[in-house]
């Protein structure tokens, strides 16, 4: 079976995947809106285009976070073990990583939605 990532990804960095996606999403929304509002014409002048772009970026970000969460869920053994995962074994260390990553994916998911919400309500480059 084909896997996007190897079954045992032995690194600390997977923990940060979802928050990094949040950070990139945040940056794209902020920089995109700033350039759109400061330089009319450079990225178009129709504010709705900006809102659609934010919607697309948001959908992409959420999809990536869900993917990170699925991988984390797998690393956590699909929840077959309960926390606290404090045994001195490699298995418990892996489960802990999976669980913490899953929690962070949840937080990042919510935070991405928070960031995108203004685009629902704001309709022009008002100052």
């Amino acid at each position: 079976m084909w896997h996007l990532l190897p079954r045992q990804l032995e690194t600390l960095w997977t923990l940060f995947t979802a928050p990094v996606v949040w950070a990139l999403h945040f940056l794209i929304c902020y920089v995109g809106a700033a350039i759109f509002c400061e330089k009319p014409g450079f990225l178009g002048t129709d504010f709705d285009n900006l809102r659609v772009a934010i919607a697309v970026v948001t959908a992409l970000a959420l999809a990536m976070i869900v993917m990170s969460a699925m991988l984390a869920w797998r690393q956590w053994g699909f929840g077959t073990d309960d926390p606290p995962h404090d045994d001195p074994t490699r298995r418990d260390r892996t489960l802990f990583q999976g669980y913490a990553t899953l929690l962070l994916s949840g937080l990042s998911f919510v935070a991405v939605i928070f960031t995108a919400l203004p685009a629902l309500f704001v309709t022009e480059c008002l100052r």
């Binding site: 902020y30 700033a34 509002c37 935070a111 928070f114 960031t115 203004p118 309500f121 480059c125 100052r127």
Partner: peptide, 17 residues
């Protein structure tokens, strides 16, 4: 400081989050 309201709103949202 007079930034566009949409910019303020992004930061407001993150501050709540």
């Amino acid at each position: 400081t007079g930034l566009p309201q949409i910019s303020l709103a992004f930061f407001s949202a993150a501050s709540e989050a």
